[in-house]
Design a protein around this nucleic acid. Structure first.
Lengths: 207, 207
DNA sequence: GTTTAAATTAAACGTTTGTTTAATTGTTAG
DNA sequence: CTAACAATTAAACAAACGTTTAATTTAAAC
């Protein structure tokens, strides 16, 4: 867990927002330096290279993510309540780290820079394990259906949100949403409850 | 609907696969020319510029997509069967145009080249309209629930698939999938039926 | 066979790229 | 004060970029 000084963080934050909006290859170190208000040589000086800075950024963010799922377990909640809390956590996390997820998304989908996303893979594995545990708990107590594919539920949760964010211009037009605030509110309310409703319908016996 | 000769198509196809795997900014026109086995000047000669070639490519692909949803309507199917057919269509379409969707995904998410995706937006709108029609048909006949957000169902369908493809390395490890063929089969079988099951649970009254 | 236009080429264009250098300034410790 | 090291700078570097040029080859039309 490396510590960075203020100037290094300036650089990383400027890079994060630019990488997200312009892409890694679409962002020059000169534009990063300008946004971070430092000399272009500082980037190589501090991080070695543009690519190593990307790795540093991803490591910095993903190590932040080591999830505190434990308190969900400790609390006295029904399995369904736990699932709902997990969905809230997923959504707020993705929303809070929008830029990082955008970057990750692209880096994962291209073969160009096959960096070791060990740290990210770890987080994903932890999440999946925690999720599986909750579902099995619900199944054993007879609340959840058993003919389901547990591994494919997180993709449905996260995929729905990511797809909605990726096609934002389309949904803004389709739903008549005009401001940033209204879009965020739609995610917080309608989209979140749609996801919960969907997962609930899939998991829980109706009666 | 512009027609392209064989050499132009060679260029477009080479560009498509490279843009998908390396990104637009990560792909040089020299590498495209090499892959298409043409001189680098041919790209400017035929398309004007690298960027215009991207537009040509997207237009070429999306105009292919003008969906033949109509025959789904004409056939004598229950609303649920229609939904299932639509899901099959979505999935096979995304699978067939994997590269194009990868490119679109990135272009939509960055502010760098705000091209007019009019053609793509049109396809999406048509799809949404057709989908809405089917759902309302099911609701009016009392088969489908009415307390649902129709606009958010396509994001759930497509988002699940796209997320699964984007995080392929993770799911390969998580599910113990080793070959390309096994992965494609998993999509065709398990993933497809998971999506159908999920949407069905959301839509249909249990009994 | 000649004319005309399209296709194709190698070479060069001016930028921009990521990175390095070498010199200078700032800071801290003895 | 000065030695030592970190931080910062402007300038230069070679390489790669997208695009254009000008010359040549190919194909079609008359």
């Amino acid at each position: 867990m490396t510590e960075y000084n203020e100037k290094q963080l300036d650089i990383l934050m400027a890079a994060e927002s630019l990488f997200a909006s312009e892409g890694f290859d679409g962002t020059s170190i000169r534009s990063i330096a300008k946004a971070a208000k430092v000399n272009i040589a500082m980037i190589s000086y501090y991080f070695g290279s543009k690519e190593k800075m990307l790795e540093a950024l991803i490591l910095h963010r993903t190590s932040d993510m080591k999830m505190q799922l434990d308190n969900i377990f400790k609390e006295d909640l029904t399995p369904l309540e736990k699932v709902e809390r997990l969905i809230d956590l997923y959504i707020s996390r993705i929303n809070k780290n929008k830029c990082m997820y955008q970057i990750l998304h692209f880096e994962l989908s291209t073969k160009k820079r096959l960096m070791d996303m060990k740290s990210y893979a770890e987080v994903k594995q932890q999440n999946m394990a925690a999720f599986r545990k909750i579902i099995k708990e619900g199944q054993e107590s007879g609340l959840f259906k058993t003919n389901i594919n547990i591994e494919l539920i997180p993709p449905t949760i996260m995929g729905t949100l990511v797809h909605f964010q990726m096609n934002r211009p389309f949904f803004e037009a389709e739903l008549g949403i005009k401001t940033d605030e209204a879009y965020e509110n739609y995610i917080k309310n309608e989209l979140t409850s749609h996801i919960k409703q969907t997962i609930k319908a899939l998991l829980v016996h109706e009666n």
